[in-house]
Amino acid sequence: MRIGSAKQTYAADEAIFKTDVQRLWFGLLALALILFPFVSSDYWQLLACLIAVNVIAATGVMILTGFTGLVSLGHAAFMGVGAYTAAYLSNHLALPFWLSIPAGGFAAAAVGAVFGIPSLRVKGLYLALTTIAASFILQSIFFNWTAVTGGARGLTIEPASMFGHLLVTPGAIYWIAMPIAALSVWWARNLLRTRVGRAFIAIRDRDVSAELLGIDLLRYKLMSFALASFYAGMAGAVWVYLFRVITPESFRLIESIFFVAAIIVGGLGSVRGAIFGAVFMTLVPELLKIGASDLAPYWPDAVKLLSPVRTIVFGALIVGFLMFEPLGLNEIWLRIRQRFALWPFRT
């Protein structure tokens, strides 16, 4: 049985992991993530990279929407800003990836903060609409600023390199994507332990009384937009090194909706929810595809014919979550953990 540890100091009580059991599980997870590329195929490594990219972006959306209560449907476009910035800096200034990825983040943060200005005046659906407008404006820039973006045809970039090695395969990019995803999650958790994270939540829950507590709404709303967009920009930049081609098509409105869906399915208002949501939204369509191709020996046209069914099943799963588990995957996780809290002595 887990013995409730007597809290010696406040520092221990303010820590992210409060018990040794939690630290042990975290250690095992970290170990698994480190060993993963050595035991998996290219295909699964590619999926892992995509999950990492989506975890970075979804964590950003979680900070903005889940914690600050500001809905954004412009996030894919902010991701695009990061992607094009990284590509441009890499192609024209020969910047290494470890500089161009944060640079992509900063560029997106600046753009995101500008498009966050309406949030001072409008909320909810109206804010969602202004961010859709942001998405369209940025799309049209991606299409028309050919000198930088390559227009509709897009552009390609050279692979990232490290100590003279080209990082071409998903297995190599994994070592960029996964650490950045881990860093993103760690940042978000830290944020929530400080006055900045508390101010975000205060704005989400009651922005009027937040102001009377001394929280400057202007400052913190823009801060949240900038930070969330920084996450998006980094995700976009990692994405560029993974695929090495970008077209404006990659950052459409539908992708922004994907992230909002991810944080809702994962569970609004928890960092863990962003991770769960990103994993779910990335993996489930793939698993459905694998399921369909497993039928191929018996039903040769399965993949083609089942393709629309897959989309419907995926959609139905999301609707199911909204209806039956509105608190998302995180809530399911908490229930399971609760049940096994006393394991193996009592289940």
Partner: peptide, 23 residues
């Protein structure tokens, strides 16, 4: 803790790392 907000000094960047002053 929210009541003390205006008197604390942790900035966004410091908050991300939760090291030194913020802690």
């Amino acid at each position: 803790k929210l009541g003390r907000h205006a008197h604390l000094r942790t900035s966004l960047v410091e908050a991300l790392f939760y090291y030194g002053r913020p802690q």
